[in-house]
Structure formats: structure tokens, C-alpha cells
């Protein structure tokens, strides 16, 4: 990136143009990791199935983290599971995003007050881009969350100008 930054020092317009193209390609092919632990997982599955069909937006499930761009943490994460979630997140290649789906992944949900084993929010372990409330959220809510994430990706810059 250093060379490009130097080259475009007085003309950051080209950088923005390139960014737009790259962001468009990233947001139009968000491959998500097949990862679900609880009832949110059922909603996640049906979001990918015929009726809600996230393939319309270019989203397909990948079974290995190496080929995924998006991790949808769907369901209750226990303390024991959290290290595995972190491992999976670390195995994903950059650029990567995380959607925290449902109350459990957001803040521990119904287990928030008395559970000895449930993690109070996955954002204690991995960075979360979009939180989706609900117990569990309906597929429409997940698709809305994906659109929020796409808006976020659209504002990203790869070729950052110094100063």
C-alpha cells in the first residue's frame, strides 16, 4: 500500500474510486461461516433457505473459516465455547466481520443474571460489527442486520491517505 499512497498523495479521488469498487465486491459476496449454537441457529438456517434466501445478496454458507468473510454468532456462548469461537474467528482471513445475533450473543440473554456458565456477550472475546436484538431474531431482522453491515463495509477504505 505504501507505494500507492505515495503515488496518489495529491489525488485521493482515485483512491476513493478504487475503494468503491473493492467495497462493492466485498459487500456483494459476504460468505458466512456455518456456525450456530442455539435456537438462533434455526433462524439462521431458514434465512439461508428458500423463503428468505440470502443468496439473493450473494451470501453463501462456507463450512471452513478459511473461506468465510462473515461470522454470524447465532446463539448462547458458554465460557467453554468462547475460546473455540475466538479460535474460529482467528482462523478467518482478513477482511472479516462479525454479526452478533440474538440476545444471548449480545449480552447473555435470559442467562444474564444467574447462569454460572454463559458468557455475557460475545463482544468480550471478539470484535462485533452489528448486534441484532431478539430472542431469537426473525430472519427479516438478520437480513436487516446484514444490510447494516453492508452499509458499514461501503464506508471502509483500503487505501488510507496519511495525514
Amino acid at each position: 500500500m505504501g507505494v500507492l499512497q505515495h503515488f496518489f498523495e495529491h489525488d485521493n479521488v482515485v483512491c476513493t474510486n478504487v475503494d468503491t469498487l473493492l467495497n462493492l465486491s466485498k459487500e456483494n459476496s459476504l460468505w458466512y461461516l456455518l456456525f450456530a449454537t442455539a435456537c438462533c441457529g434455526i433462524e439462521l438456517m431458514q434465512t439461508g433457505a428458500s423463503r428468505f434466501d440470502v443468496d439473493r445478496f450473494g451470501m453463501i454458507p462456507r463450512s471452513t473459516p478459511r473461506q468465510a468473510d462473515l461470522m454470524i454468532v447465532a446463539g448462547t456462548i458458554t465460557h467453554k465455547m468462547a475460546s473455540r469461537v475466538k479460535r474460529l474467528y482467528e482462523q478467518m482471513p482478513e477482511p472479516k466481520w462479525v454479526i452478533s445475533m440474538g440476545s444471548c450473543a449480545n449480552a447473555g440473554g435470559p442467562f444474564c443474571k444467574y447462569s454460572y456458565s454463559v458468557l455475557r456477550g460475545i463482544d468480550k472475546y471478539i470484535p462485533v460489527d452489528v448486534y441484532i436484538p431478539g430472542c431469537p431474531p426473525r430472519p427479516e431482522a438478520l437480513i436487516e442486520g446484514v444490510f447494516k453491515l453492508r452499509e458499514k463495509i461501503h464506508r471502509e477504505t483500503v487505501l488510507r491517505k496519511e495525514g
Binding site: L22, S25, S29, R56, G58, R66, D69, Q91, P93, P95
Partner: peptide, 19 residues
């Protein structure tokens, strides 16, 4: 409809980290 999806996929895969 959606024919450019393969271009988006290709560009994105080039951009991804090569682990």
C-alpha cells in the same frame, strides 16, 4: 439478474488474506 456476482466473488477472493 445478479450476473456480476462472479466478478464480486473473484475480486473479493483476490483481496482476501492469503493464509
Amino acid at each position: 439478474p445478479g450476473v456480476l456476482i462472479f466478478m464480486a466473488d473473484g475480486l473479493k477472493l483476490i483481496l482476501k488474506e492469503d493464509i
